[in-house]
Simulated scan of single mutants.
Amino acid sequence: MRYDCLIVDDEIELAETTCEYFNLFDVSSAYVTNAEACRDFLRENTVSMLLLDINLGGESGFQLCKELRLTTGIPILFISARSSEDDVLVALDIGGDDYIHKPYTLRVLLAKVKAVLKRYGNESSSEPESIQGGPVQINPDLRRASVNGVPLKLKTMEYKLISYFILNKNRVIPKEELFTAVWGDVFAGDGTLNVHIRHLREKIEQNPNDPQYIKTIWGIGYAFEDK
C-alpha cells in the first residue's frame, strides 16, 4: 500500500494520536513503534515521508536514518524531546530534512507535513517505474536511486536534483530553472547548487574532476549528458 506518512515513535499513545489526526485531515498515515517494525513496514509498503523519533527503545533513530539513506531519498523529519544543538546538527548531517521538538502541536506538525508532501510528496506518481540516465537509475515510486546497480546514499535535495537532471537529460538547464524546480520556495543560491553538484559528481562520476555526465555549461547552468 501507499501512505503519505509513516510515524516511527516508541511513545505509542502519541504515535497513535498523531496518526489518527493526520488521517482525519486526509494525510494517509500509519505508525510503528520500533526500528525493526519500520524496516518491515517499508518492505511491504510505499511511503512519501517519515516522522522519526531519535529514541527507539533498544535502537537509535539516528542509526535507522543512516541505514535508510542508503536506499531512499524520501524526506525524513526527526521528532524528539532532545533539544541540544548537537542532536539537531547530527540529525541534519546524516540526512534528516528537519528537526521538530516535542511536545509538538498537532496542527503545526500537520502543516509542516503537508508542506513537505506538497513539495516532495506526489509529483512523480505518473512517471514510469524507473528511469535511466547514464549509469544512474531512479525509481520515482520508491524515491530511490542507484548507479550501476549499487544503491546511492542521497539526501532529499540530491535525489530531487539528479531526478530532474535525468528527466531532462541531454538538455541545457539554466541555474534559475534548477532553483525553481528543485528548491521551490526554499531560498537557494549558487553556493548551495555548487555543493549539491559536487556531491552528486562524487557519487556518480568515475572522475568527479572530469565529469562525463553532469556537465557545467559556463554562464548558463548544467546539462546531464547521456551518450
Rank of each mutant, 00 (worst) to 15 (best):
S60Q: 11
G96F: 01
E129D: 07
V116F: 13
L106M: 10
K112D: 01
S83C: 09
A188K: 07
E13Y: 09
A188E: 13
S60G: 10
K112I: 04
L50Y: 00
Y104E: 04
D98I: 02
D97K: 00
L51D: 00
G134H: 05
F25P: 06
A111E: 11
G189Q: 09
I204Y: 05
F62I: 07
K153L: 06
L92K: 00
F224N: 05
K155T: 14
D26H: 09
I166F: 07
L178T: 04
K160P: 06
F25H: 06
K169H: 14
I76W: 00
N23M: 04
S80R: 03
L161K: 05
P211A: 01
S28K: 13
F179V: 03
S163Q: 15
S28D: 15
P140F: 05
P174G: 08
G184F: 09
K175C: 12
Y213T: 09
E127G: 07
A30I: 02
T156M: 04
I166G: 10
D93G: 12
A15F: 01
I7M: 10
D26R: 10
S83V: 08
T156Y: 00
D86V: 09
D87H: 08
S126D: 10
V150K: 08
L70N: 15
V90A: 07
V147I: 10
A37L: 08
A111G: 14
N122A: 05
L14R: 05
H199D: 13
S80I: 06
P140D: 05
E85D: 12
K153P: 01
S80D: 09
N209W: 08
P208S: 03
R144F: 14
C38M: 13
L110D: 03
G57I: 12
L6R: 02
V116R: 01
Q212E: 13
I214S: 03
D86C: 11
D185Y: 15
S125L: 15
D226A: 15
M1E: 15
I217E: 09
L110A: 01
L51K: 00
